[in-house]
Nucleic acid binder design. Structure first.
Lengths: 190, 190
DNA sequence: GTCTATACGTTGATAGAC
DNA sequence: GTCTATCAACGTATAGAC
């Protein structure tokens, strides 16, 4: 049994049931091991959790970075719209995103400091990625009403909202709000 | 010991540590009882949790309703801005809001159906409250670019974002995003 | 209503055989 | 690396004295 598979199972369970709601027995069961055998791969439950968390932040950041570079040359409105769509499309098949949300919103209390440290670092880096594109948008006159920083911050409220709706689980409402939010947003900056 | 005080203690703990992360012993400890004594007041942990949940939805809806009626005659932009401020101001002294968020985002799995049922009902009712005010805003020409339903949905993305940022815990970032989001939003609808 | 005592499953974790 | 065996601690919940 590879550590990788164990971490995948843990990721899914942590995403669905949270840290406290997930037992080592459940994780072991998922990969066909006894819970005691997990200790050959990880020092403790916290060790397993933190490894999954660290990998998740790294993977999500790389994904954002790659997305930016792939679509950098497209018109600003296309880039932003696809960026929003990227969240909604991925979500339901991607426990990593749900794990990240859940852990960021409500970390296990005894790991609060470590989680928050990772999270703030992540937010800062992702904001910087978006800001790059908005600065280019300001130079090329793609948006006229708003400065890049305001546009970045306001755009990130749209992403927040998608996250909220995705967690809530109503697909129709997510769609409605995405459309409405985007319409008003683009109307407001361009 | 009144049931009311027990529910208050439970509310705070559920908000901070979640359902699974909170034990009856902790709740009892908080009010100076032994955990066994809680069973004189509640049939089970689930019973306690669901009572707190039901009360919370009722209280939060009444709060929204009262807020609407108090500020209904003010200009639309004032009403909306105060409404956003209402969230940020209350949050850090109000575990009920955090409890509601946490439970709505990530309900205990075995109570998922009951929580979601309450939640969707709540969302629908609160949306209807905001829609009332936006319809009046459209009639009185306070907003020109957008229909009331779109404005309502887009506004609720702003509220989502505040919730996200409040949970994340960074006050400065909440403030920045609130300002940016509001500026672009009002620019987009009025 | 609150307590002590108790039941009983499950938790995370360790030791040692294979 | 995986297993069986075992552990202490803690989880929810019940019974019965006061």
């Amino acid at each position: 049994m590879s550590s990788h598979l164990i971490k995948e199972a843990a990721l899914t369970l942590f995403a669905e049931k949270g840290y406290e709601g997930t037992s080592l027995a459940q994780i072991a069961d998922e990969v066909g091991l006894k819970k005691q055998s997990l200790y050959s791969h990880f020092k403790s439950k916290d060790d397993l959790f933190l490894q999954v968390l660290t990998e998740t932040f790294a993977i999500e950041y790389e994904r954002e970075k790659e997305f930016l570079h792939t679509h950098f040359e497209e018109p600003l409105s296309d880039y932003l719209w696809k960026s929003l769509r990227n969240y909604t499309d991925r979500y339901h098949n991607d426990s990593r995103q749900k794990f990240l949300l859940r852990t960021s919103f409500f970390p296990p209390s005894h790991l609060y400091q470590q989680v928050i440290h990772h999270l703030y670092d992540h937010i800062e880096r992702v904001d910087a990625l978006y800001l790059q594109r908005f600065e280019q948008g300001a130079e090329s006159k793609e948006m006229k009403k708003t400065d890049p920083l305001t546009a970045t911050m306001a755009f990130s409220t749209l992403i927040d909202s998608i996250c909220v709706e995705l967690v809530y689980g109503s697909k129709e409402r997510t769609e409605k709000k995405l459309q409405a939010g985007w319409t008003v947003y683009w109307n407001g900056i361009a």
